[in-house]
Each structure stands twice: as C-alpha cells, then as structure tokens.
C-alpha cells in the first residue's frame, strides 16, 4: 500500500540481474493499453521513466538503474517556468502534463537525467509519477530479485 509520504525508490545494485524488467514494466504502465504486446505498437511509443545503463567502477561493470528521487529541494521545480512541475505536501514531485510546454528547463537541471521528453505532436516532458493507477509501483512489482525497494519518508 502507498503511504502519504515522500517516495524514494532505492536500488540494491548487488541484487540486480540486468534483466531490464523494471524499464519495460514502466513503459507498459504508461502506455494507453497497459499491455506489453500492444504498448510498443502505440502511436507515440511510451517512454520509460527510468534509466538503465552500464556503470563502470574500478574496472567492474554493473547494471545501474534509477528514477526520480523526489529530491528535498528539487531543481526541476525551481526551474519550471510554467508552474507545471510542483512538489506536493507529501514531498513528491509531480508534473502536470497539461500545463507543460516542453521547454526543457527541467531536463537542463535534473542531475539524475530522469526527466524524459515524450515524442509526438505535442511536446511535453514525463517523469516518474509513482504509478497513480496502481496500489504498488510497476518497476518494483516487475523486479524478479527484489533489487528495487521503496523507502517512504514521513514529512
């Protein structure tokens, strides 16, 4: 169950298998059909709100994934010129896509690179929305090894 608090999805790198299930689940959850077989055929293919990439530390190669951390003092909110990006009372960063004009200010400042541009006729940005249509989080539910975990901080 979701609590009324700041959501931080934490990644345990030691448990990750690099299977990319979280990325796929995220894209599907944000598609119109919510069906993995149909989602990729949709016009304006849904963008995952999560990055998966290669991390190389001290010659070791690992898979690394992250999504929005709902920063305490979010640069994306401070940089938004339309008022589309706001921080809720619970401390989560939410984007009102109706208000977003796709100006790119948030992408310019997000230090984690987790705000994405939705391709299509109308330009707007997308980010982790903490899966409002579900009781849990799609990425966490999809992870076969429990490498993703939600840390909810009371505010």
């Amino acid at each position: 169950m979701k609590k009324q608090s700041t959501v931080r999805i934490i990644f345990n790198i030691a448990k990750c298998l690099s299977c990319r299930s979280c990325e796929l689940a995220c894209a599907v959850e944000h598609s119109r059909s919510k069906d993995p077989l149909k989602a990729h055929l949709e016009k304006d293919t849904p963008v995952p709100r999560r990055n998966i990439s290669l991390l190389e530390v001290k010659e070791k190669k690992m898979c690394f994934t992250l999504t929005c951390f709902n920063c305490d003092t979010p640069l994306c909110v401070e940089s938004c010129i339309t008022g589309a990006m706001t921080r809720t009372g619970e401390g989560n960063v939410v984007l009102n896509t109706d208000k977003c004009i796709g100006c790119g200010m948030c992408i310019m400042v997000c230090p984690f690179g987790v705000i994405k541009q939705q391709q299509g006729e109308i330009r707007y940005m997308v980010k982790c929305d903490m899966c409002p249509d579900r009781e849990d989080y799609a990425c966490i539910a999809a992870c076969p090894t429990g490498a993703l975990e939600c840390k909810e901080e009371e505010h």
């Binding site: 990055n51 290669l54 991390l55 690394f64 951390f69 920063c71 305490d72």
Partner: peptide, 21 residues
C-alpha cells in the same frame, strides 16, 4: 548519463550533501 558520471562523482563525494546523492 548519470551512470557514466557516477564514478567521478564518487571521487569527489565531499561536494555532495544532498540526501538523494
């Protein structure tokens, strides 16, 4: 992307106090 730059951030850890980092 963030993973690309993470190794050099780790070297300079002292510059980060933000909880998310």
């Amino acid at each position: 992307d963030f993973a690309t730059v993470l190794p050099v951030l780790l070297e300079d850890r002292g510059k980060f106090t933000e909880p998310e980092f």
